[in-house]
Simulated assay, not measured.
Amino acid sequence: MLEHPNHVLAISTVRTASATELEYPAGPIVCVATFSVERTNDDEARFASTHVTFEPGADWRFPGAHIRCLLHRHTFAIGCRSFSHNNREAYRRNRCPSYEELPGTAHLPSIQRHVIRAREKTLARLARDHGLTVSDRPPHLLQAQREAADRAQAAWLMALGFVRNQEERAHLYAAWEAWRALERARPLPF
């Protein structure tokens, strides 16, 4: 990502553990959080966040359907997957495509997608440095669901580091900080 696309959708999924699959220990998706950055012109960006939970026994197509509703024709979808010495060999052996980490994007050839592979400690440190909450070790399921929205924003921040133009990076980062301040100031709906 050498220049920031007009629309980026960062996706964070939380899965239950699978008792039957040893090679793929991830079970069904129980939470999806997204962070959308849409450039309206050279000087403005619009931010949005979603955070949806699903019952473990719910239809497996629901998370993908939720994400497809948020995609544009020219969306650049990103996600972040934990990368450690333990799963490096499994990744090399299986070479799972990016869309497995980005549900709802498999049958949309017009969009670009990328999964960033990072150590949990690296993502947690980046999140913490920017006021987000992401655990540096695998949290329990409820904690992972609570952190999903911040994890999506941290994935976008990590991808923002790949934008070549420093001025563009600084502008988008400042706009994001302003959006976060407004989000924190918003009263709770209950």
Rank of each mutant, 00 (worst) to 15 (best):
E3F: 13
V8F: 12
L9P: 06
A10N: 10
I11G: 03
S12L: 04
S12N: 10
T13S: 01
R15C: 08
T16P: 02
T16I: 09
A19Q: 13
A19W: 12
T20P: 02
E21D: 15
E23M: 14
Y24D: 14
Y24N: 14
G27Q: 04
G27H: 03
I29C: 01
I29D: 00
V30H: 02
V32E: 00
T34E: 03
S36C: 09
E38N: 04
R39N: 05
R39D: 03
T40C: 08
T40I: 13
N41C: 03
N41T: 00
D42T: 06
D43I: 03
E44D: 14
R46M: 10
S49A: 13
T50Y: 00
H51F: 05
H51I: 01
V52I: 14
T53D: 05
F54G: 07
E55Y: 08
P56C: 10
D59P: 05
W60P: 13
F62Y: 11
F62E: 14
P63H: 02
P63N: 04
R68M: 10
C69Y: 05
L70I: 05
L70Y: 03
L70M: 12
L71M: 10
H74D: 15
T75C: 07
A77S: 06
I78K: 04
G79I: 01
C80F: 02
C80G: 03
F83M: 12
F83V: 05
N86F: 13
R88Y: 15
A90H: 13
A90F: 09
R92K: 15
R92G: 13
R93P: 01
R95D: 14
S98I: 02
Y99E: 11
E101Y: 07
E101K: 05
L102Y: 03
L102S: 02
P103G: 01
A106P: 00
H107E: 09
H107Y: 10
L108Y: 04
Q112T: 11
Q112I: 02
R113Y: 02
R117V: 06
A118F: 03
T122L: 09
L123N: 02
H130F: 11
H130C: 08
H130K: 09
L132Y: 07
T133P: 00
T133M: 11
V134P: 06
V134T: 07
V134W: 05
S135Y: 04
S135E: 10
D136I: 01
D136N: 14
R137W: 06
R137H: 11
P138T: 15
P139W: 03
L141F: 01
L141C: 02
L142V: 07
L142N: 11
Q143I: 12
R146E: 10
A148V: 01
A148Y: 00
R151D: 01
A154P: 03
A155K: 02
L157I: 09
L157D: 06
M158T: 11
M158A: 15
A159G: 10
G161N: 12
G161R: 12
R164Q: 15
R164W: 12
E168D: 13
R169Y: 04
A170H: 12
A170D: 15
A170M: 09
L172C: 09
A175F: 04
W176C: 05
W176A: 06
E177W: 07
W179F: 15
W179T: 01
A181R: 15
L182Y: 09
L182E: 15
L182G: 14
A185K: 08
